[in-house]
Amino acid sequence: MRDLPLPTLPIAEIRAPRRSLHRSEPGRVVAEAPARARLEVVWARHEDEVREAQRLRYQVFAEEMGARLSVPKGSPAGHDIDVFDPYCEHLLVRAAGRDGEPGPVIGTYRVLTPEAARRVGGLYSETEFDLTRLRPLRSRMVELGRSCVHPEHRSGGAILALWGALAEFMVRNRLDTMVGCASVSMRDGGHYAASLWEQLRHTHLAPIEYQVQPRLPLPVEELQHDLTVEAPALIKGYLRCGAKILGAPAWDPDFNTADLPMLMRIDDLPAKYRRHFLGA
């Protein structure tokens, strides 16, 4: 088993949000999900832990969603792997284990820090969007990506546990901005995604100085975009935390999704979420 390189920023000792999480050992949190299932949030320290996250990603993206994944040559079968993974920090949430053994990974995010983005040559989001207007933010901006939760654990506890750890990581390392792509299924041909963008651009569009352009735009005008739709739970959660949509969606034909560029800043967290995630 090969140790991964040291993280590009110090991994924080994760502080527990009030009432919902309680401290375990340094770098770990044990959370109570709504069904009283115990969850543990950890940062991957070794390659085998990253592989666990990549297997979960493959299960969700390829097997469940039907994505066509292009992986580097020599990658193990049944894993979602790309060139950004070795440069990222990987946040994992585990279900309860037995007999002192760690439980299975049931949720994950990957985090690309500013220094790591410089080393790899950019952000994953830049393959889909022109992010030139975000240049003034980049020294304190991380990219979140490849977020997913196992289908049996989507009641909310896992994602809240991940968000608490992400918020602590950001504050501890003096980072203030998160950017990433929020994917919307195009199984209906894109009409839902086009209608969602049409709604959100009137209510949650970022100021023009932060707006970005898709490299392969979703052809909204050719789709039905006047449906009354509700945002997916993850996007709805981001918006409640103060996130903004940065512009029109890009079309990702490999994942068969429309990707909305999103930006969230720690300073924009509403007070109740600041108390919940940061205890402040």
Rank of each mutant, 00 (worst) to 15 (best):
M1W: 12
M1Y: 11
R2Q: 11
L4G: 03
A16M: 04
S20R: 11
G27I: 04
E40A: 08
E40H: 10
W43I: 09
W43L: 12
A44Y: 00
A44S: 07
V50F: 00
Q59S: 12
P72F: 01
S75K: 07
S75F: 05
P76F: 02
P76C: 06
P76S: 07
G78Q: 14
H79E: 15
H79G: 02
D85T: 06
H90M: 12
R94P: 01
E101K: 14
Y109D: 06
R110G: 07
E115Y: 09
E115C: 08
E115D: 15
L123N: 06
T127S: 13
E128W: 04
L131P: 07
T132R: 15
R140M: 06
R140E: 15
G145E: 04
S155I: 01
L160N: 10
A167D: 04
F169T: 06
T177S: 11
M186Q: 10
H191S: 15
H191N: 14
L196Q: 03
A206Q: 03
Q211G: 09
V212L: 07
V212Y: 01
V212M: 07
P214L: 09
R215C: 00
L218K: 02
E222M: 13
A231K: 04
K236M: 13
R240G: 09
K244A: 11
I245F: 08
A250F: 01
W251D: 05
P261K: 05
L263Y: 01
I266W: 10
L269R: 12
L269K: 12
P270W: 08
A271T: 15
Y273P: 01
R275M: 14
A280P: 01
